[in-house]
């Protein structure tokens, strides 16, 4: 299993860098992931998205539709793409510690 080392901490991740054991996730992990993938500093808006995705996933065992992210955070769609240059899947979901979704992402 590949390991990702950020600032001296090691995480088991899949080939695309998604966390293997979603339970080891915490906000420090999120910050480290964000710093590593071009998202940069986590602002309040970033946190609102990430926390919502995390909660939704815990309840439903899947990532939310981006519409739900918009409606629950009050952010506009285009803002989400600006906040997470890698997009909602490889950006926000990864930072939120979700496993990689299937499909063209």
């Amino acid at each position: 299993m590949p390991k990702l080392e950020i600032d001296g901490r090691e995480f088991e991740v899949d080939g695309d860098g998604f966390l293997q054991e979603p339970d080891v996730w915490n906000e420090d992990v999120a910050r480290l992931f964000a710093a590593g993938d071009g998202t940069g500093e986590m602002t309040e808006k970033h946190w609102a998205v990430v926390r919502y995705i995390r909660e939704y996933w815990k309840e439903n065992d899947m990532a939310p539709m981006v519409r739900k992210v918009c409606q629950s955070t009050g952010l506009r769609l285009r803002e989400i793409y600006q906040l997470f240059p890698m997009g909602p899947a490889k950006g926000a979901c990864k930072i939120a510690g979700l496993p990689k979704p299937d499909g063209c992402v």
Binding site: A63, V66, L77, R78, P88, A89, P101, G103, C104
Partner: peptide
């Protein structure tokens, strides 16, 4: 549609 569109990239 590609499901990726409604899920993450609906623009």
């Amino acid at each position: 549609l590609n499901p990726r569109e409604p899920k993450f990239f609906p623009l």
